[in-house]
Design a protein around this nucleic acid. Structure first.
Lengths: 164, 164
DNA sequence: TGGCATAATGTTATATTATAACGTAACTTA
DNA sequence: TAAGTTACGTTATAATATAACATTATGCCA
């Protein structure tokens, strides 16, 4: 049995990203359908752009990609921000605070407080899927009621370390 | 012996802030002196402004306070950002990513990866002083080499919960 | 002490990120 | 189909941050 020590860091492993991407898109559609919320064309466009890679994108970068399509008329920032607002609220996208950027959720539906490993080398971001951390325990020890948590670890992934 | 369960969350406790402030300023001076780096007047001004409260401040808010002094000529954003850059590099100030804001370090010299509890009620921020977390362990388990970590927990402090 | 190198500050302009405000179109449901 | 709601489009502008270059202060040592 192969070691699975990195199986929760898909972003840092070689994988069939085509499949990864379509799996996440299907999951998104299903999730929205089951919750009776609308994944409109715009929202889906933005989600698809984010799912193209495991790298976070700025809002204006997304905007740029939307506007690359010459068939469609140019759109302005609020379009993107509104789609992102929706996707964030549903948990299909996360915000990477330390980069003012956005990334597709790697574990849609798991709701939990996400934690990110952000590689400075390849700029990919892995989303850990661990529910409770010691932090949450500490917070409650001092009587703090958690609403939302941001955990972003920057550094070098294994491969980028090897590449020097 | 009184419970010390919250002693590391000074920000959320009633305390003599006058003393807190001057203690941190002295510590900063000492730290810079011992490391032979210059805490210039500008840098000290900015640090003092941040030490006035346990609430994070945006760069332009700091700028506003600097420019409140009618004796001195107006300064422009780069002044503030440069002072902040210095103070961040020395570890006298931290950046609160989820607010694009800055806060005086509550434990100067401890170097460690800081973790913040951010209250939505009183807007105060407590800096935990815990060295290694389970996160760091997890990161190294997947071969990730940590450079910097951002841990920001938003919610309600005990007092704000009580206040309804 | 004077002159050089470096570090810090000051100034202007502009880049980047985000949202307010208001109008139009589309969907939903009675 | 009318009314209410949600989503989208458009314009303008707010808020955050930095590039580039000029000036001043500091440290150093010949």
């Amino acid at each position: 049995m192969p070691s699975n020590k990195t199986t929760q860091c898909l972003a840092f492993e070689h994988h069939d990203h085509q499949r990864c991407q379509s799996r996440l898109l299907s999951a998104a559609k299903q999730l929205c359908h089951s919750q009776n919320i609308r994944l409109t064309e715009r929202r889906e466009q933005v989600l698809q752009i984010l799912l193209q890679s495991h790298q976070p994108m700025g809002a204006y970068e997304i905007l740029g990609q939307l506007n690359q399509n010459p068939d469609v008329s140019m759109v302005a920032p609020p379009i993107v921000y509104r789609a992102l607002e929706f996707l964030l609220s549903v948990g299909l996208v996360h915000r990477i605070e330390c980069k003012n950027a956005f990334i597709g959720c790697a574990h849609p539906g798991h709701a939990s407080a996400a934690q990110f490993l952000i590689c400075k080398g390849c700029e990919k971001v892995a989303e850990l899927d661990n529910p409770t951390t010691s932090l949450q325990q500490e917070a409650s020890q001092v009587g703090f009621m958690i609403d939302h948590s941001v955990v972003e670890i920057t550094g070098l992934c294994a491969e980028c370390q090897a590449d020097g």
